[in-house]
Structures are given as C-alpha cells and as structure tokens.
Design a binder for these strands. Structure first.
Lengths: 138, 138
DNA sequence: TTACTTGCAAAAACTTTGCAGGCGC
DNA sequence: GCGCCTGCAAAGTTTTTGCAAGTAA
C-alpha cells in the first residue's frame, strides 16, 4: 500500500504510514475517528485532518474503498481485489471483501424493464461472520 | 402515501402534505434541502426540521427509502415496491425503483467463500436513463 | 533548500434537540 | 380544548479549509 503511494508520487511520511497501518490492522472497516485512534499508537501526534487527507489519496489510487454506514458517517476498508464489494458483520462490524458479483442477470433485467443503461453498481451485504456465529451458538 | 400516514396514527397536516408532495414530484431522489425547496411551493413556512421529521416517519412506515450519495449527504426516494432498490441516472439524478433482484446466486457464492451468513443486502445501480440517452445522441 | 505535508484552529455542511406557540381532530 | 405538530434557534457531528511550522527528498 505504501509502495503504491510512493510510486504515485506522494511522500513517505510518518503520518501516512500510521494511517495505512491503522487501516490494515482493522479487520475490515473503520471510521476516520477509529483510524485516528489506532494510528496514534504508531504516531501519537497524528491529526484527524491528516487521516481524511490520506484517505482521499488512497481512495483516488483505489487502495481503499469507502463504505456507507446507516448512522450517517462513512467508513473505510482496504481494497484487495480489483472489483470488490464488502460483506459486513452486523455484530462485530468486521468487513470482508469478496469479488465476483454476478449481477449480469439482474442488470440485464433492470435494463429491459426500466430502459436505463446501467454503467456501474454498488453492493453491500450484511450478515454474521463465522466467529460471531460460533459465539452466538453457545 | 398520506392515507398510510394517517392510518398509522399520524396527523394530516399541511407541512406533511407539502413534504409528501415534494417527494412525489421529484422524479426520483431528493435531498432534504431539495425537498424543503419544493415543499415550500406548497407551504411557504415549511421548515427543514419538519422535512427531516416527516422523512423519519415515512422511513419507518417504509413509504420512502433512504439512498446514499457519494457527496456525504443522504437522499430520499418514494418506495413503491416491497423489496426495492434504485437505479440512478448519472446525468439527471432521476431515480427509478425496480424489484426482483436475483442475488441468491451471489449471496450463496459469498456465503460459501467467506463463511458469513448473509442476512440482508443493499444495492444501487448507476447509469443513464432513457431520456438522457436520447438527449446525448443528437 | 524547496516543495510537499502536517496539525491546530476555525469554518462549513448536515442533522438533531429544546421549546414556545399553532393546528388537527 | 387537549395533545400532537411546527418552526425557529441552538447544539452536536462529521468533514473541509487556511495557515504557519515541520519534514522528506
């Protein structure tokens, strides 16, 4: 992640390393405030503004994906596959990326029915992750 | 929409009629601020707070759906089908609801691959609506 | 050294809450 | 007339912007 950043012409700074580490450490998604907290473990003087600015760069380079949470604020997750979506645990908030969404059928049906030309899509799944399933069985 | 509201025990007030009219008039989605502007045509004294409060009620009754836009704020669209998603025009922002998303295959694949138990999902399609297609051909 | 980065503070944007007066029923 | 509803103002959140000091290369 750092390598790609540098390759794109950005500096390798302590603050950016801290933000990247924070993103990688969260099992999945994290809000900017979460990232600030985890990032400060690596770089205590880290500021929230820098978290936002670093995320902006990472988004542009497609190294990170922006997820929408229902409570109004956004969260961010590392992007590992090329065309990826996320499945999010409703209990522990862990997010896992998956690839290969076969939406061709759905897209074709919608195009036929609405007359729209579909260019892109956006999908998030919600459920329970393996670990939380085990826990809740007891 | 009004009928359902009243049936659920809410009063039939001028402000609520204005908000509902505003939602129905927008071809598809609209932000709270948009709704305030359109609503004021019907009820000039309408306040933004009332727009939010009315939307909250309509959401609860499933008469309206909340969409997420990338620019940070939310937008709302009337909900006509029971389990519906929206396809949104990237040019004119018009939103159209569609039903029948065949995600079973995708969901099954993801469950097999990640171990998650998928409980719900969230899908938005983006493209160009029939009218904008015509316009751009010329 | 030079230009890019940073972090604080302040501002902006969006949403929620408190409360006195108004309106539906 | 009673109680829900409204709209203003103010507060709370999240995100963006300005700027002087700091750091990478």
């Amino acid at each position: 992640m750092l390598a790609a950043l540098v390759k794109a012409g950005h500096s390798n700074t302590r603050a950016r390393r801290a933000v990247i580490a924070a993103i990688c450490e969260t099992g999945g998604q994290a809000s900017p405030a979460d990232l600030l907290a985890s990032g400060r473990v690596h770089h205590p003087a880290l500021g929230l503004v820098t978290v936002y600015r670093t995320l902006e760069i990472l988004l542009e380079l497609d190294l990170v994906r922006k997820l929408h949470t229902d409570d109004g604020c956004h969260s961010y997750a590392p992007s590992t596959h090329h065309h990826g979506h996320h499945v999010i645990c409703q209990q522990c908030q862990r997010a896992m990326e998956f690839e290969g969404c076969d939406l061709e059928t759905v897209v074709a049906a919608v195009e036929a029915r609405t007359g729209f030309q579909v260019r892109s899509h956006w999908l998030e799944l919600f459920g329970v992750c393996p670990e939380c399933q085990t826990k809740s069985v007891r």
